[in-house]
Design a protein around this nucleic acid. Sequence first.
RNA 1: GGAAGGGUGGCUGAGUGGUUGAAAGCGGCGGCCUCGAAAGCCGUUGAAGGUGCAUGCCUUCCGCGAGUUCGAAUCUCGCCCCUUCCGCCA
Length: 424
Amino acid sequence: MLEIKFLRQNLSDVQKALKARGQSADLHAFQKCDEDRRMILQEIEALRHQRNVVSDQIAEMKKAGENADILVAEMRDVSIRIKELDKDLTLKQEQLDEILLGLPNLPHSTVPMGKDESENPVIKTVGDPAQFGFDPKAHWELGQMLGILDFERAAKITGSRFPLYFGAGAKLERALINFMLDIHTTSHGYTETLPPFIVNRQSMTHTGQLPKFEEDLFKLSNWDYFLIPTAEVPVTNIHQGEILDEDKLPLCYTAYTPCFRSEAGSYGKDTRGLIRQHQFNKVELVKFTTPETSYDELETLLADAESILQKLQLPYQVVELCTGDLGFSAAKTYDIEVWMPAQGVYREISSCSNFEDFQARRANIRFKRKGKKGTELVHTLNGSGLAVGRTLAALLENFQQSDGAVVIPDALVSYLGGMEKIAP
RNA sequence: GGAAGGGUGGCUGAGUGGUUGAAAGCGGCGGCCUCGAAAGCCGUUGAAGGUGCAUGCCUUCCGCGAGUUCGAAUCUCGCCCCUUCCGCCA
């Protein structure tokens, strides 16, 4: 959510920024609503003031044994009028909230202009894709050959786009989760958390999934609860409504959770393999920072996510999302894309964003500076560190041998009880 | 699911209709003391919003929402959450 005062004073700049995102918004409706609301508010406050003053008078008169019937009758009318105006105010406030909650964040000044993902600049490429003396197989073929992935049976259990792992596959997924959590907690200073996988409507609104993107979520039928699409939601909401101490910042959390996404509108896209599932595992990184450090923290967050790929010896590139590809809540985002040899493309495996105070304002997460009056909103950041299913897919494809076996990178061997390769 | 109790400021915790934004304590900040610190003492210390060039003024906020009243932290009703006990259960 944008600050209402800022919006009021910078309407044309905001309009421009929205256009860069490829969106248009009816900011005139906002302007009108905002003005109406303030008019009503001022009238209400004046009436309340009158009532407060006169009520004190009434108390004095009664104490003195005088008759206050006339004032009481007057104030009865004032109260009725206040009640009427209150209804108007609530209505205006709701309209205003609807507009404000529907406006995306503004791109940071360093975000490159562009219309869609085709215009995301690559800012670095790390590692050399392996040369195969044969046609590399897709991970779903390898998974099937090795007997560690079974999408057909998963479809019987639930439906399409659900994963089912067996044996070394299940163990590898678990090993990756442990490996990532261990690195982030012991080498990068994150605190491990294990949050709820189901959250309420408020939490979803705080991080920006709601109200606009409800169709992307799985909702429980008899509850106003949702399955989380990412650990970002529960972990960012750990501190909703809190005033944090300045010297506790930055707060850095990591969490493993499964993630659930309806993938509405992606029919026919990435239908095979582990790339686009309704349920997948992810290790997430979340930070709460002061405003002046958030962009430095974004760089280290990115480096923390990258280090996992480096330790796994997976080739990748980092792209910067252009204005047209930026997510709703983000001010700036880097995507890490891992090399997938079978398709010959880089695929997103992590997305690292600074939300500045956009989520903090919705979730009311503030901090207090030492010796200073008042509070300020924190900045929130998060990134995948990493998407586990996609990491497993990348491992299978990048480390496959001509006989279909898959070599385990050194960093993971101890997590697999010494297993160095998955053989058919 | 049944029964009881409870949700008050950064924290603990008083407060049952009219200077209560709210006692007290802790914490924070400033000062005195000290070579310096601790202890002690004194003072100070909530947030959000509206308005104004501004010192400021005003409004709201005691879980949430309605209601009673001239006036509600305080009375009534509904809801949410927490704790304890019982039942059921991984």
